[in-house]
Design a protein around this nucleic acid. Structure first.
Lengths: 160, 160
DNA sequence: AAAAATAGTTTGAAAATTTAATAATTCTTT
DNA sequence: AAAGAATTATTAAATTTTCAAACTATTTTT
């Protein structure tokens, strides 16, 4: 129907905006888009391993590995060998890395925020509700890219 | 505000979904993300010059140039030297290129579409209205990336 | 008709990405 | 417990993407 088409057009526009935003942001921070994604992933959930990051951002482990080399070189992250399982390598943001991320000027967000705050309260509510609905309707895409992140990183040392 | 935060979270999720989708799509079509963006840009507005494409997708002319080399090599686009101004190079999709784009399995869209069509009509309307509102609220980002595409002087002079 | 500006390409180099191979560690099965 | 399989990360080699700077061709300005 026409409704569907309109919705898809809007979605595509949002995606385009997202992409341009990411590029601009990357340029401004002197990072590549992938590096940015990786840093954000690390920021969001602590104690990620290299492999988990790879799944998260949809790249191979090898790519992450060399990507981390660079990020580490710049002292934006550091690696910590796992204690319980020494094959694993946990990655964490350094202070510098955290600072870079938070200082990253999110032009798109700022612009959106300004406008959002000018809306009536009920409009804000409606918008939030709809946006959440939309994300829900897209969500499955994650699932077949990155199967599942099973039980968190609550890394209990096995008693053995 | 909390509302704002919720909205931003949703937006970020949508962007993430968009990014993953782009990657997957690129992989499936055997193109890079940039190549995909370029093709889509060409599809949308005809008679783009190389330079305009560069602005449109936020890459340098040099990058576009080599990118077009590849696309042309694969016969997805072809270049036409401008007639009025022979410095310019207009880029157009070939049949193959058009076919590739339209056959591109838009997994994300499909999934969304299925679900969208199951909504009540009024829900669809509301969703469209809100989405359009959101894109409107983001729109400015385009403007400072790609200044303006003023009234097109469509001078096409085909092959020679 | 020079000089300056514009459009696109080429070149050289860094970084990103992937697949395949390798190394280290842990888990399984006998 | 030892041998073999599986997991996790890294390295190696090849390709691709990307950009800045230099360059060519064309148009516009002076």
């Amino acid at each position: 129907m026409d409704q569907l088409n309109d919705a898809l057009v809007s979605l595509r526009q949002i995606m385009r905006a997202a992409d341009l935003n990411a590029r601009k942001l990357a340029k401004e921070t002197g990072l590549s888009i992938s590096q940015l994604l990786v840093l954000q992933a690390i920021e969001q959930s602590t104690d990620l391993t290299a492999g988990e990051i790879a799944k998260e951002v949809n790249l191979t482990q090898a790519t992450i590995s060399s990507l981390l080399d660079r990020l580490e070189q710049r002292e934006l992250v550091h690696r910590v060998r796992g204690a319980a399982d020494r094959r694993k390598v946990y990655v964490a943001l350094t202070e510098t890395g955290r600072a870079l991320l938070s200082s990253a000027p999110e032009a798109l967000h700022d612009r959106f925020s300004d406008r959002f705050l000018k809306l009536e309260t009920w409009e804000q509510s409606m918008m939030v509700a709809v946006l959440q609905r939309v994300t829900g309707m897209m969500e499955a895409s994650d699932i077949d890219a990155a199967p599942v992140l099973d039980a968190g990183k609550i890394d209990r040392t096995p008693l053995s």
